[in-house]
Design a binder for these strands. Structure first.
Length: 168
DNA sequence: GCCAACGTTGGC
DNA sequence: GCCAACGTTGGC
């Protein structure tokens, strides 16, 4: 039995890597490396598989927002930036034999016409249990339910229809 | 730039 | 194993 796709939210500060950077990358694909948190690592290593879907979230910008979606093209594998001296995410405890940190590859699926700002997510009752919206939550890789994922897509479609009507 | 919330580190 | 100190995240 094939496993049903699962859903995730990845945070990125657009100043360091935005969804447009993903669009500009070769094959619109990037390795999601540099995650240095054990809970997020466990998701990357154990649970995130090809064909899973990802909400691409822009943090530390005004407004914080879901900018689009991506699809996982390669599941968990060791994050080699961890043992590259001089890399911003270098971790001296790591080696190829003892990788500690993991990454997955994702490919751009869609950039929303209108990003869905955080406050719009908060106003949506169907999203009230989203990990992102919980007090104190700051996991950079987090699970999303199928219903939450589809609700965000619905908001994106609605926002896009409105913006087209409003323009010229 | 502030600061609340959270994770990690290290002395004991 | 506790917990204070420190570092980081990320919304505001």
């Amino acid at each position: 039995m094939p496993r049903a796709p699962q859903y995730w939210l990845f945070k990125s500060e657009p100043e360091s890597f935005s969804i447009r950077d993903l669009a500009a990358a070769p094959k619109k694909t990037t390795g999601w490396d540099g995650v240095r948190n054990y809970q997020a690592r466990n998701f990357l290593r154990d649970q995130i598989k090809p064909d899973d879907r990802v909400l691409f979230y822009h943090s530390s910008v005004d407004p914080p927002a879901v900018a689009g979606t991506a699809v996982v093209v390669r599941g968990g594998h060791p994050d080699s930036t961890a043992w590259k001296k001089g890399d911003h995410h270098f971790d001296p405890k790591c080696s190829p034999e003892n990788p500690i940190w993991y990454t997955v590859d994702i490919r751009l699926e869609e950039i929303f016409d209108e990003p869905i700002p955080l406050d719009a997510l908060r106003r949506e009752p169907a999203l009230k249990d989203m990990v992102l919206l919980q007090r104190g939550s700051r996991l950079s890789v987090q699970p999303v339910t199928k219903r939450e994922f589809e609700t965000v897509l619905k908001l994106a479609r609605a926002g896009s229809a409105k913006s087209k009507k409003g323009k010229k």
